[in-house]
């Protein structure tokens, strides 16, 4: 039974984690380090192929902070992320709870909602750009038809609204992801606990607060962190819908980084933004692990 002894030894744990870790370290760790190095160098198209480029220390970061766009983009990223994470979660939870009720075709309908998540971002961006168009967009047409607005709403062209517009589209895109993961979490809650609670006279609201939410907590933590990370790297949708405009009113860090690198060829600046994003997400990841570890071990 030497195989079993091996499988019970601590070595196996190291191997199990090691395989995935090595894979990620090699294929993502290297690119992240590559970005980090670029962020402290002066990188041009000319010296891009070699690593021996002029060292500029924190110059790229200083320039970033001094850029008049920095505060605007940071604010946009914050609003975009918070709004997305919160609304996607609330809607996702609502839908997950609704489709968990027993009624005919509930599972089928829940699966159908996932279709929105399958479309390529390019197509989602294009469709939403039409729906939100101020002249012939369906949203304005419907709102006018319902008598809710008399004029037009410039969803995309108004710098005060463009962030709202891309946020709506991105929420739409992210809700199924939240819903399905929460549904899976709900499915993991043993029904006998509910039955016992019902016998004790607990109403649906109390059962939700005292049973569902606590048992769902691991899923919720994971989901909130993942949604935060995914929202912070959202790129295609905004790029297709507004390109970050007008006047950078819908510009967020990944879009800015992309434009700096590939439109202005300021690779050091683009890399500095990427590194800053990485640092931000590190904070989110730390928060996640802390909250997970605060759970009582099962």
């Amino acid at each position: 039974m030497s195989r079993d002894r091996f499988l019970d030894s601590p070595t196996i744990w190291v191997l199990l984690i090691g395989a995935a870790a090595l894979f990620l370290l090699l294929l993502v760790g290297y690119p992240i380090a590559y970005n980090l190095v670029m962020s402290v160098q002066e990188v041009t198209l000319g010296n891009l192929p070699s690593f021996s480029r002029p060292w500029v220390g924190l110059q790229n970061y200083r320039q970033l902070l001094a850029d008049p766009l920095f505060l605007l983009v940071a604010k946009n990223t914050l609003i975009f992320t918070v709004a997305n994470v919160a609304v996607q979660f609330v809607l996702g939870l609502g839908l997950a709870l609704y489709f968990q009720l027993s009624f005919p075709a509930s599972s089928f309908l829940r699966g159908l909602v996932l279709v929105g998540w399958m479309l390529p971002p390019l197509v989602i961006g294009a469709v939403w750009k039409w729906l939100l168009g101020s002249d012939s967009g369906f949203v304005n047409y419907a709102l006018q038809g319902l008598g809710l607005i008399s004029g037009k709403i410039y969803w995309l062209a108004d710098p005060l609204l463009s962030l709202v517009a891309v946020t709506i589209a991105n929420i739409w895109f992210g809700v199924p992801f939240n819903m399905i993961l929460l549904a899976a979490g709900l499915a993991g809650i043993p029904t006998d606990i509910y039955e016992a609670a019902a016998l004790d006279g607990a109403g649906p609201v109390r059962r939700f607060i005292w049973i569902t939410l606590p048992l769902l907590r691991p899923t919720i933590y994971a989901l909130l962190s993942l949604t935060t990370v995914y929202t912070m790297r959202a790129f295609d949708l905004i790029y297709t819908m507004t390109h970050g405009g007008p006047l950078d009113s819908s510009n967020i860090f990944p879009v800015w980084s992309y434009r700096m690198s590939f439109e202005l060829f300021d690779f050091g600046g683009g890399a500095a933004i990427a590194t800053a994003m990485f640092a931000l997400v590190l904070v989110v990841a730390l928060a996640y692990v802390r909250s997970v570890n605060a759970e009582r071990p099962m």
Binding site: I17, A20, A21, L24, L27, V28, G29, Y30, P31, I32, Y34, N35, S225, L226, V229, Y230, M232, R233, F235, P254, S257, Y258, S261, F262, G270, A274, M277, F278, L280, V281, L282, V284, A285, L286, Y288, V289, V292, N293
Partner: peptide, 24 residues
Amino acid sequence: WTAAMVVAIMAVQVLPPPLLVTPM
């Protein structure tokens, strides 16, 4: 160490593919 791994695994997701693909 496993906690640190989880942090790392969460964080490596942040950069969008256009920024990763050249070194890859």
